[in-house]
Amino acid sequence: MMPRKRESSKWIFSRELKDTTFIEDVPEGERGKPFIVTPLGTRVKRILVSGLLTAKSTEENYTKLTVADNIGPFYVTVFNSEYQPEVKETADKLEINSKVTIMGRVNTFKTDDGVIYININPEKIMLVDEVMLKYWNSRCQRIAMRKIFAIGEMAKLDSPDKAKLVAMGYSEEEAECAIRHLEHYKSYDLQGFREAISSASKIPIPEADDSTLKEEVFQFIKTHADPQKGCKYEDIVAHMKTKNADQAETDELLNMLGSEGEIYEVALKRYKAV
């Protein structure tokens, strides 16, 4: 039997992971976690991310980390594992604003409403320097831009044709990503994504009040939620505006809290604290 090739990690920005809405089915007879397909068509099971540690909560059995790249957060859950106890130990020792590179498996959770939450279960956590962050950022930009170009070229063809894109100088992977994008994300706002990653050329500056704002959202939901219907999204946004957080920031905070398991959506755009 041929040895199975190691699944290499994908290097993608948080935005590409956050906007993911498609999870592949695990083939019959196979075990393990499914691949996700991102808006750029990247088929991901293992991921390598770099950024600043912006939040950490440590429990006995798991540690939750939030790592921010230049665009947004990645949510990381490190479980106590007898196979890799050093990973949790490393996570527990990390300090806020540490520069880290994390390699791990993506783990998905889909709510009844079809909302997908994705977090990363690390296999390796490395403390890194600023050069590593810049290197990772530059590589992600290049990889994403080439995929966007490939999608543009593929969209011009009468029907998707991998060989034609490869003949133009794209890799097989880039051509396959373009096909998957057209299959699953035809109406995705590629321009918006492109603008977001174009601006991602600087290392993120840690915002001191990020955890305070998150706590503000959490407390607001906790104290203003209807016992049955939960707290209205519009009310949360309006409240956070008084705290100088715009709608996009509030969305991020809600995502963060949702991914950390602190809140959940009882109905569409209605939240309750756990």
Binding site: S8, K10, W11, L48, R139, C140, I143, E173
Partner: peptide, 9 residues
Amino acid sequence: FTIEDGTGD
């Protein structure tokens, strides 16, 4: 050793 650059290993 094994290295990765985001396109493969």
